[in-house]
Design a protein around this nucleic acid. Structure first.
Lengths: 115, 115
DNA sequence: AATACATCCCTTGACAGTCTAGGTATCCCG
DNA sequence: CGGGATACCTAGACTGTCAAGGGATGTATT
């Protein structure tokens, strides 16, 4: 059970990665993320939709109203070329960050001042 | 070069882990974190000191004015038992979160809707 | 003696992102 | 008809980070 606070800043890259598989609507993105991570990640709608709008304003994704398989209207988001660039940058950024945190949390090398 | 935005929520556990090696002052904690991660992490003082005060209020750490090796006055922080509990919880929480994000970012299993 | 740099502490104000808690509408199933 | 799933949205509170300032003292350089 992870702590929600870590999500900060990571939601964007998670959504971008999800959309890199193909266009999908917000609800579907959230569902897949939760399913894919065995509910370890819980995506709140109050975080998701602002994030989608934010990224659309930035030109990372584009939207289009379409019908789902269930004949419901939904706004499908699609990665732009810029969004794909952003995804690559953020994915490697995350890797570097996670690696740095891992060094601290799971490293066994004691600091000099540790008696 | 990681993106600073990911730090959100992680600073506390990084500081707690650093202090788990023994008491240290704020400046020393920041220096060690930056050195340990090869400057991948940059700890801003404007984030660090509020974090220390926050954690002291929560009872995770305790402080005491002492002299450093260089004969400078500095506020040394020490983990409390509660802080050690918090560290364990947050460390495993981080691991779970990082694992979940990793599944999404580096997984090769395509969603059903990916044609 | 003056200057610079490193060590050590702190706070204020702006800002960004998340969450809670609401709201709307349609469809399907019992 | 009621409830739950699907699908969208926003307002307001909150939290944490950052930029940009501040001060004080020790050491090294000039």
């Amino acid at each position: 059970m992870y702590d929600r606070k870590f999500l900060q800043g990571t939601l964007d890259v998670l959504v971008l990665k999800t959309l890199s598989w193909g266009p999908m609507h917000g609800y579907g993105v959230a569902s897949w993320l939760e399913e894919r991570t065995a509910a370890a990640l819980k995506i709140e709608e109050g975080s998701l939709y602002p994030a989608l709008h934010r990224m659309e304003r930035k030109g990372w994704i584009e939207s289009e109203w379409r019908l789902t398989e269930n004949d419901r209207r939904a706004k499908f988001y699609r990665l732009t070329a810029e969004g794909r660039h952003q995804l690559e940058a953020d994915a490697s950024g995350w890797a570097a960050f996670a690696d740095a945190v891992g060094k601290v949390l799971y490293g066994t090398e004691a600091p000099a001042w540790a008696s």
